[in-house]
């Protein structure tokens, strides 16, 4: 094994700090694409996940045939899509994406796979949050004559809101990671930048810059999520 010497360390450092390689307009464009993919998929996952969570929560442990059937079906799809590795899912969905978007590259093309992989995961998180609601509170609302709709809007969602928000924070962070993976196979964004310019052209500084930007996005999401949870949690 070669001993470390100052020359080696300096040359590695030089690889990572050659900022002439970095084309800043490209970085900015990639950042926007990543933010677009993340924001759009998080919004869709938020809505779909809450619906899935409510459906799972409402149909779980019920006696009626309809409830048992829908629990089994939803639960099956959730487990399947949660288990498919993201990289495989995105490749698997190429024909589907082509059919609905008429394109298989660019940030929008990454969205179907991002949403389909994250919504079931988030749906499970929402279901767990809903199951943590005090059963007594649900009983009290029922005793007051609340309808199903009122239960959902006035009890289920407000009483599990901290879990719903912290769940979407976690999901959003993993979605940022998924956008990078989607980028590698052509969806654009910082992952695409790191792969095309950083890896294929052997420009380590570009990869480093992409990494730092992704970290900043993740920290920002975590920061906002924590603030919101702290603000709404009155327990």
């Amino acid at each position: 094994m070669m001993p470390f010497n100052n020359g080696m360390i300096l040359s590695v450092l030089a690889d990572y700090t050659d900022f002439t390689e970095v084309r800043w307009p490209k970085v900015w464009e990639a950042t926007q694409e990543t933010i677009y993919m993340t924001a759009f998929s998080v919004s869709a996952v938020f809505i779909l996940g809450i619906l899935i969570g409510l459906l799972l929560f409402e149909s779980r442990g019920k006696e009626s045939l309809w409830a048992r059937g829908s629990y089994k079906v939803v639960s099956f799809f959730v487990n399947v899509f949660r288990s498919i590795p993201f990289l495989i899912l995105i490749v698997l969905l190429i024909p589907f994406t082509k059919a609905i978007l008429d394109s298989m590259t660019g940030p929008t093309a990454g969205l179907p796979a991002l949403i389909l992989s994250a919504a079931p995961f988030y749906g499970r998180l929402v279901e767990t949050g809903l199951r943590e609601i005090d059963k007594g509170v649900i009983e009290a609302a029922e005793a007051m004559g609340a309808s199903k709709w009122e239960m959902i809007w006035k009890v289920y969602i407000p009483e599990s809101l901290p879990s719903i928000v912290s769940g979407i924070t976690v999901t959003a962070i993993s979605l940022v990671g998924y956008t990078a993976m989607a980028g590698v196979i052509g969806a654009g964004g910082l992952g695409n930048l790191a792969y095309l310019e950083g890896f294929q052209r052997n420009q380590a500084t570009v990869t480093l810059v992409a990494t730092v930007v992704i970290l900043l996005i993740v920290f920002a999401i975590q920061f906002v999520g924590d603030i919101v949870v702290n603000k709404i949690d009155k327990r």
Binding site: G136, V137, M144, P158, I232
Partner: peptide
């Protein structure tokens, strides 16, 4: 109806 553990909504 009132309950042993009050069953108030913590969010309100």
């Amino acid at each position: 109806m009132i309950f042993q553990h009050f069953n108030l909504l913590w969010s309100r």
